[in-house]
């Protein structure tokens, strides 16, 4: 039997008209900034002028939303700097000051709650035993008898699995070693969360809730700028601070001085002194993620 020819271009054209009309209506519903944001290229491929334009639009958008002047930096990594972090387990008392300093500095959602730092309480008699670690401890005073504390946050791996699995390349490791996320490119697939062995990535299941009076307006495009529902976020060593030459908020707040931070490429830095004179614990060393976050015993 001969196949019937169905080439009817007028009918085809009329069939496509409603689709075209809906598409046009959809696009017309967006303003030019939303369209620009939607069609924005990957941050790494943008020119300085394009980045400036995006940053300007974001500042305008945040002003309209929060009624405050925001500063969104896009300061790139400085050559000759590789950030590293060390934490003295013998000094940490588990007071969680670092957790809340991080929440305030990085505009983390208060409800639903997101914490980039988790302080694990473990029993000394069991050693480092994650299966019996407790993050919900709440005694009158810390440290509790017979316990020690191990704060865990993004380990800024040299061999990060989270960036490898990202299907849109929305997350990558910058030249100074900080693993960053471009929230405009994140599609919220959460592959990176599954790949991270440290539980360091957090997903915004709903619109983040930060009280207007507590919002930090000093932000970085790849760091603490306000996020939206459906994107993944993580510790960036306070990229907005460290790229300006300051310490991360958690380092500054620590009442016992158990947190050390610095440039691994600087032979005179405190972090290099620790690495060269102390024996350090690399968390989950067997996974070969090669963290730049080291634990040590100062005593």
């Amino acid at each position: 039997m001969q196949k019937k020819e169905k080439n009817n271009s007028r009918r085809d054209f009329l069939k496509k008209l409603p689709v075209l009309a809906m598409g046009t209506a959809g696009l017309a519903g967006c303003n030019s900034e939303e369209l620009e944001e939607f069609f924005q290229q990957n941050f790494k491929t943008l020119t300085k002028a394009e980045k400036d334009e995006i940053v300007k639009n974001l500042e305008k958008k945040y002003f309209e939303k929060y009624g405050k002047e925001f500063k969104v930096s896009d300061k790139p990594a400085t050559e000759g700097i590789l950030f590293g972090y060390a934490l003295d387990l013998s000094r940490c008392i588990g007071c969680r000051r670092c957790v809340y300093a991080c929440v305030e500095e990085n505009n983390l959602s208060r409800d639903p709650q997101i914490h980039w730092i988790q302080v694990l309480q473990m029993e000394k008699k069991n050693g480092i035993d994650l299966t019996h670690a407790n993050i919900h401890y709440n005694p009158e005073l810390v440290p509790e008898e017979g316990h020690f504390y191990m704060p865990v946050q993004c380990q800024q791996c040299r061999n990060p699995q989270c960036t490898t699995v990202c299907p849109t390349k929305a997350t990558w490791q910058d030249e100074d070693g900080i693993v960053v996320v471009d929230y405009n490119w994140c599609i919220g697939c959460r592959y990176c969360m599954a790949a991270c062995p440290y539980g360091a990535r957090h997903f915004n299941w709903s619109e983040p809730n930060v009280p207007n009076e507590e919002i930090n307006t000093e932000t970085h495009y790849l760091g603490n700028r306000p996020r939206t529902k459906g994107v993944v976020e993580k510790c960036t060593f306070c990229i907005q601070r460290v790229r300006q030459g300051k310490y991360p908020a958690c380092v500054e707040i620590c009442p016992t001085g158990s947190r050390k931070f610095g440039n691994l490429l600087d032979p005179d830095s405190e972090i290099r002194y620790i690495l060269e004179n102390k024996r350090v614990i690399v968390f989950k060393e067997e996974l070969n993620t090669q963290p730049k976050f080291y634990y040590f015993f100062g005593v």
Binding site: R91, V99, Q113, L141, Y198
Partner: peptide, 21 residues
């Protein structure tokens, strides 16, 4: 090997956060 003498009241415990395993 590391007794700590400093004692402080801890900040509130997190709500509904999942522990790293």
């Amino acid at each position: 090997k590391f007794p700590v003498s400093t004692q402080l009241k801890p900040a509130p415990a997190p709500i509904a956060q999942i522990n790293i395993k």
